[in-house]
């Protein structure tokens, strides 16, 4: 498998009225062709911001850390440093949509309400595939068919509000894929949908990914969804990846106390009488990021004198997996 995206040491800070905050700190991950990386974490853990940085979609107050590297291998094999693309450049516009496509959580809000589905699809198709209007329309109808929208020839002229929630997200997938991206970033695409629709959309995305051979970054807060769709997983907490590895391995044998907490928090049909077990405490505000290990304020296994003082290094106990936790270092174990 070839690496199509390699992110190293990504740090993102924002200038705010309360000073500089750094919601993403030293994040590294890779995406391989045809595979899915799941980014998991609570709201505010920096999942979305990290992926928005790839396409320079962050507001003007955002700054990337000096050591941040984001190398993307384009469809033609060219290596592109995503952080260095000039604003408004043709190359950036080609990357946006044509190389990397993005699907968002709210299908209703991601369509403009004043243009038809077809209008917005044809715009992307004409931009990235160089087709004429008539051909673009045919292409759009074909794409709507592909994502399982019945009567696509009529739907293409409808407005977003005329579609149901699930249909809208299917149409959004069609819109994003119609530009022909090699890498798909899906930012909680099923969170706003009913559970039954959720499963359909997940199936659809997995099938399309296989068929088109795309790489995918799937952002979610739900480890259950990760189990269904991701090959690899990276668990984020307060802007840092605390654990990563093959999805099966991480879910079966979580190393980090935070990952363990997230898995315990999933309600189970086998234990209906048990109370739910949420991860204790609240996620701290990014303006008050705890020193040392960011998770120590909520960790039940924190080692006093170590975890709140020093940031843990990334270690690898199981091959292919990595974890940032003092419990998994020789130093930490002796301190405990």
């Amino acid at each position: 498998m070839s690496k199509m995206l390699s992110v190293e040491n990504l740090s993102i800070s924002f200038r705010t009225d309360e000073g500089v905050i750094t919601p993403v700190k030293g994040v590294s991950f890779t995406v391989e062709k045809g595979r899915t990386l799941g980014l998991v974490g609570e709201s505010g853990s920096g999942k979305s911001i990290s992926t928005k940085a790839l396409m320079q979609l962050l507001p003007g107050t955002a700054r990337l850390g000096a050591a941040s590297r984001m190398i993307y291998t384009a469809k033609d094999g060219q290596q592109i440093s995503l952080g260095n693309l000039r604003h408004g450049s043709k190359e950036l516009r080609r990357i946006r949509g044509g190389e990397i496509g993005m699907i968002f959580q709210e299908p209703m809000a991601s369509f403009s309400p004043v243009y038809t589905i077809g209008n917005q699809m044809m715009e992307a198709i004409m931009l990235h595939r160089g087709l004429k209007k008539r051909e673009a329309r045919q292409f759009a109808i074909g794409m709507l068919n592909k994502v399982g929208i019945s009567n696509a020839a009529a739907r293409v002229d409808q407005y977003p509000h005329e579609l149901s929630g699930g249909m809208r997200q299917r149409a959004m997938i069609a819109l994003t894929l119609s530009a022909g991206p090699a890498l798909l970033i899906a930012d909680e695409p099923t969170t706003a949908l009913d559970v039954t629709i959720q499963a359909q959309v997940l199936d659809l995305m997995r099938d399309l990914q296989r068929e088109l051979g795309m790489g995918m970054i799937f952002i979610t807060h739900d480890l259950g969804v990760i189990a269904q769709i991701a090959d690899d997983v990276a668990v984020m907490y307060l802007g840092t990846i605390v654990e990563r590895g093959p999805a099966k391995e991480v879910i079966r044998n979580p190393q980090h106390p935070y990952t363990q907490g997230l898995l315990d928090a999933i309600p189970s049909l086998d234990h209906l009488h048990d109370r739910l077990k949420p991860v204790p405490g609240d996620i701290p505000s990014p303006t008050a990021r705890p020193g040392g290990c960011p998770f120590h304020t909520r960790c039940t296994q924190a080692i006093a004198g170590t975890c709140e003082v020093h940031e843990p290094p990334e270690t690898s106990a199981i091959p292919g997996c990595a974890v940032r936790c003092w419990l998994h270092t020789s130093q930490g174990r002796s301190a405990a």
């Binding site: 979609l57 408004g88 516009r93 949509g97 496509g101 993005m102 968002f104 991601s110 992307a124």
Partner: peptide, 21 residues
Amino acid sequence: KLSVTAARARGVPELKLLVKY
């Protein structure tokens, strides 16, 4: 609005994007 970010993420040129969306 998210629709503006979404259009930008599709590579719509900025000036056209501002007027259209």
